[in-house]
Every structure is written in C-alpha cells, then in structure tokens.
Design a protein around this nucleic acid. Structure first.
Lengths: 206, 206
DNA sequence: TAGATTGTTAATCGATTAACAATC
DNA sequence: TAGATTGTTAATCGATTAACAATC
C-alpha cells in the first residue's frame, strides 16, 4: 500500500472503532471480529475491514482481531499514543465542565492551559490551573508549543480568537461556538453544537 | 416532488444552513445566494441548491434567496417552528452546563425536566428546575409527553437509562456518554464526544 | 478436516458537481 | 437588455457492499 490519500470519512470512523474496542478491552474481551464490531456499531463488517485495509493488515483469517493490538494500531494511526497538551479558551459553564472532565486523560488529551477575558476570572484557579488572560493567548500558546485548542467562547468572539490561534500556530480547533469559522486550510476545525444534532433528529420526529 | 426518501446526509446539512442563515439575518442581511452561503460554509453552491430542491423551490433566478423566508422554511422542514421540551438526565458538570446554556431557547429547544440519581442532588434546584430522581424517569417523561432527551451520565449507566427512555416513549436521544447505544431503529440517537473530534483532527496533525 | 473470518476485487449504489435552460 | 442565479439534468466521482480465494 503506497502513500495513498485516506478519505476523510474513513478517518472519521477510526475514533469510533477505537472507542468501541477500548470498551471491549475494558470488559476483558481479548478478540473480536469485523462482524461483531460492526453489529455493535451498526456498520457493515465489510466496511470495517475495508477501512482498516487502508492502513495495513491487523487481523487473522478465521480468528478476527486481537483487541489490544488493534487498539494500539489505531492509536498510532490517529497519533494519540503520546498525550496531547490542549489549551481551552473560554471558562463559562461549558469551559468549566470541559476543564473538569476526566474523560480526556485516558484517551490521549490533557488540558494544560485555560484562558478567559473576564478580569473577574483571570487569576482564579480552575481544575488546578490558573486562568490566564486572553490577551496572552498568542504568546502562551507559542511558548508552550500547543497545537490543539478547545474554543468555548460566545459566538461573537469565536472568529476573532480563532484568528489569533492561527497566528499562534495552532493546528486543530474544536469549536463549541455555534458559528462557522474561517481558517487556513492547513488548520483543522471540528464543530460541536448540540442544536445541530437535535435538529437533525427532530426532522424524523413528528 | 413526491414522498421521496431524503438522504440522511442531506438532512444533516440543513441545520448547518439554518444556523448560517440565522446569523446572516441577525447581521441585518436580507438576501443571499447559494454561492455566498456555500463560500461561507465551504460547500459547493450546487450542493446547496440540490439539497434544497428535495423540499421545494425557495429562491428566485437572478436574485437568490430571501433569508428570512428560507429560515422559516428550514425551521418548518426540521420541525423546529414550535419549541420542543427536552429532558436532561445527569447533572454533573456537563449536565449543569447544558441546563444553564442559553443557546437552546432561540433555536427551538427548552430543557424542562432534569434528572439525577444522586440523593444529594435530587430536590436541589438547577437553572430554576428541581432535580428529579432518576427512578421517576419513565413516569415523568410519559406524563409530560417528552420526546427528546439529552443524556449526560457516565458511560457505565448510559445504556440502562437509554432502555428506560425507550420504554418511556422517547424518540430522540442526544448522547454525551462516550459509548454506543443500542436502541430500536425508530429511536434517533446522536452522539457528542469531544474526543472523537479531537482524534479526527490529530490524524492530520503531526 | 470443517468452520470461520480476513483482505481484496469488482459490482453496485449513492452523492457531488458541471453545465445550462429558464427567468428574474 | 445584460447580468446573475436558480432548479434540474446528466456525467462524474467516490463510497459501500457482495462475494470469494486465502488461510487460520
């Protein structure tokens, strides 16, 4: 297999596979098959095998996949064997919840810097970290070499801050503000907006 | 246009169009084109016109789309003209942030019931609502006729609660627990897991 | 061996896009 | 009228699936 372009849609499924496999491992399961994993995820077994085949051969005919081995391989493929340090901008209710969320650590991420522009919050401590002033975003992110940021500020401020994150060399932004960001194409953006998901569902609910 | 099946992927883009159009309207803009909207969203103009064509004709040649009219139509299509009452299960940090989030109201949703199984939380007030005991989920949701639930409980409890939500007649679950739920096919499920999005991005970040 | 399951090929299916007549 | 943009068709592109040889 040569240096082939991996479809985005395939990349998008890998973390879902990883999450399900990790859970199986936690439950003490050692081996699974594309059939079993597919049934659990509502995906065809052929699709799982095809997706994995973009990256190598990880299974054994007649047997299936060693879960721990496949987990390792997916972590390597997704670049999450080592822990990423992540900055958080915006310490409202949501930002606070993210800072305190303990589900990041064992999946490859750790929030190590938090920013807010509210003078009443700057200098206080959240999840053991001092809240830094948003004016220091560029300097601090550069100094710490951070590449990934979670953005939990109001919609009206998101684009302006995104611009500064790009300036600081950030490569990936997880945007919780309900607004589309414009960034250079080498910067990854993912969106989390619960209303989008709710509206997707209400289409089908009468 | 007859009773044709609308592709899921099309339905998934409509809320994104709606969000962008709503923002344009807030900015005082009256008219837009598929070209302008597409550029803002990073989508081709042809795709936007094709998507909308599943539901009717909303534009005018040479001119484009009346933003307010298109917003109304999308709200109608997505079934969000009237406000949906939503239940929230799980009042940890995240649940609390959701209960206090003021971005739901003007987009068609309102949390009107909150549940938790922690005796220390039951009976307290969150965002003006009493925290109800999780043991009452089925009865309360049935009594109030709720159809949509946000699930913000630990992964280990999510499937069990989902089962009870299904029993209570819930039709749509927005699941924040990092685990795949198994539900009957007539029940909609959407997932929000920040780590999935982060891992999708780190694939591209070296 | 018999049964199970992989990785891969080719066929099918579905989504996106280019192009353009219609028309504002 | 000239320019712009829609809605739609047909072509292209890409993703999913069925099927099966290989083999554990």
């Amino acid at each position: 297999m040569s240096i082939r372009e991996i479809p985005d849609i395939v990349v998008g499924r890998l973390p879902v596979y990883l999450r399900a496999l990790t859970r199986m491992a936690q439950d003490g399961q050692l081996i699974t098959s594309s059939k079993e994993l597919g049934e659990r995820l509502g995906i065809s077994s052929a699709q799982i095998r095809k997706d994995l085949s973009h990256f190598g051969e990880f299974g054994k005919q007649g047997t299936g996949y060693q879960i721990l081995y496949l987990v390792e391989q997916l972590q390597r493929i997704l670049h999450t064997e080592a822990e990423w340090q992540v900055a958080l901008v915006g310490v409202g209710d949501l930002g606070r919840a993210l800072a305190n969320y303990n589900g990041f650590a064992n999946r490859g991420f750790r929030i190590t810097a938090v920013f807010d522009n509210d003078p009443a919050k700057v200098g206080t401590t959240i999840a053991g970290m001092p809240v830094l002033d948003s004016s220091q975003i560029v300097d601090e992110i550069r100094a710490r070499g951070l590449r990934i940021v979670m953005l939990a500020v109001p919609a009206g401020r998101a684009q302006e801050i995104a611009n500064r994150l790009v300036e600081a060399g950030v490569r990936a932004i997880l945007n919780y503000a309900p607004i589309n960001l414009t960034v250079p194409k080498e910067v990854q953006v993912q969106y989390i907006d619960p209303v989008i998901h709710l509206q997707r569902m209400t289409f089908y609910v009468t």
